[in-house]
Amino acid sequence: MMAVVAARELADGEVVFVGIGLPNLACNLARRTHAPNLVLIYESGAVGATPSRLPVSIGDPALVTGSLMVCGMADVFQLFLQNGRIEVGFLGGAQVDRHGNINTTVIGPYARPKVRLPGSGGAAEIAIHAQRILIVSKLSPRSFPERVDFLTSPGQRVAKVITDKGVLERDTASGDLVLAGLYPGVEATDVRAGVGWKLESRAKLNRLEPPTTTELQLLREVLDPQRLYLKS
């Protein structure tokens, strides 16, 4: 459901900075359904990639074969990202707070971390330069605290957070994330239970359509037949 909702957020012809896992599934699903002209850019330097297998890493060789362009990483960050050529960026993280700020660096204090996470990678600059950020993350009070332990990627360009129960959106007046849409069979209280602050709601909540048979078939039989990322 998360991959399907994320895919539907993408418009045909958009230029998307893709991450590994569910965002990759979402982009390739969109490309095979309503957005055949989606341009997928991976931070490893593959532009216009059409991976023939599910990439396990962001630098999978299948991203190169048949792509439109392969460039060095200085070009990815300077000529594409900082230049403003990326319309949509996908991010995830161990923690997302009420403003959409993301932590992928440490749990606990930086100098004496309880858990050391991988760090920013390209996430800080994606959050700063992509025109619209989509976060994909499963709900839990630990993952959605009121404040992140470490601010790796600022949240001001976060448009939506796609969770396993519903969709949060940024409220432009308060700058806070608010509940905007619910998946079939889910109630607002289910979403609130997974968030560590008092989550406000839009006056009218969207009821999101379940995946179509085509979407499910593509995900399960073509894009991720081994269920590497479709466990949830």
């Binding site: 931070e43 200085a74 960050f77 900082q82 309880k114 990678g121 390209g122 600059e125």
Partner: peptide, 21 residues
Amino acid sequence: VEGQTLEIEEYSHFGMVARFS
């Protein structure tokens, strides 16, 4: 890192690319 036996200096990808540039 959690045992504090390794010194670290941390950037983002763009920061590291820029350092090499």
